[in-house]
């Protein structure tokens, strides 16, 4: 509770400091809008040419795209400390400053950055999600809404957990973080499309190692009335927790890495 309070206060302050440069903020927010619209346009153009992907209709594809986009950018917005700012903190020595305070390191990292510009990306995602849901004729019930909320919530932790791989490598001062990018940004680009699009190795990667399929595709497919692999309905409520589990593992590894950092930093 106390941690949440600190997070809330930090966010308020960071927002205030970003609003010091309103013109720049507005420009960048618009730029984000344009970028994400571009991504959506690619899907629309594909649908225009191909009409469908396996059993998924155009509406279904917008639905999957929107779910991924909302979740990914919510994470980028609220967990910016991990998804973007961390390596800079290690390089500039700001991480040292965090160690000098009586709070958890991860808490403080999360409290030290926010990226409100992503709001437009989230909006594009929400638009695509809404459009997809209409075109697919989803009859919303409380249960379905809850499942989607659960998916977004667990997706948040999943994506943060994946970005923590990068942070952990960074603490161990490994330079090639592009490999970690394959899981994070690569995962986003791939799993905008339902998992059965991909051949077995990629399917395994995005189910077992970076379980986007479990967190997003299983519940989304259930809501669309086309259960993935014909799995029973209750799986849609259970599989998203894989995201939390992944985060838990990464959290432990992160703590271990921090001990290592403390014994070698200069």
């Amino acid at each position: 509770m106390d941690t949440l309070r600190l997070y809330r206060k930090s966010m308020a302050m960071l927002l205030k400091s970003q609003m010091q440069y309103p013109a720049s903020f507005l420009m960048q927010t618009l730029a984000q809008l344009v970028m994400e619209s571009g991504e959506l346009m690619a899907v629309i153009l594909l649908v225009d040419r191909f009409d469908h992907l396996n059993q998924w209709t155009a509406g279904n594809l917008y639905f999957f795209f929107g779910l991924m986009s909302m979740t990914f950018y919510l994470t980028e917005c609220f967990a910016r400390g991990i998804t973007g700012a961390f390596s800079g903190m290690v390089r500039s020595g700001q991480l040292d400053t965090l160690l000098l305070r009586p709070r958890g390191v991860l808490t403080q990292v999360l409290c030290s950055a926010v990226d409100p510009r992503r709001i437009t990306c989230i909006a594009v995602g929400a638009f695509s999600f809404g459009l997809g849901s209409r075109l697919s004729g989803v009859a919303w019930t409380a249960g379905k809404a809850l499942i989607i909320l659960e998916s977004v919530f667990c997706g948040f932790w999943l994506i943060m957990g994946l970005f923590m791989i990068e942070a952990i490598l960074c603490i161990h001062s490994v330079k090639s973080i592009e490999l970690a990018n394959a899981l994070t940004y690569g995962g986003r680009s791939a799993c905008e499309y339902p998992i059965d699009t991909f051949p077995r190795p990629l399917r395994l990667l995005f189910t077992v190692i970076a379980p986007f399929a479990l967190v997003m595709h299983v519940p989304a497919a259930w809501v669309l009335g086309k259960p993935l692999f014909g799995w029973p309905g209750w799986t849609a409520a259970v599989t998203p927790t894989a995201g939390i589990i992944l985060f838990g593992i990464m959290y432990l590894l992160f703590q271990r890495a921090m001990r290592f950092y403390r014994s070698t930093g200069s």
Binding site: F50, N54, A190, T197, F198
Partner: peptide, 15 residues
């Protein structure tokens, strides 16, 4: 990843 997507798209709708 991209090729996997195009392969799946092509499977149902040759161009």
């Amino acid at each position: 990843v991209l090729i996997a997507v195009y392969r799946a798209l092509y499977a149902g709708n040759p161009q």
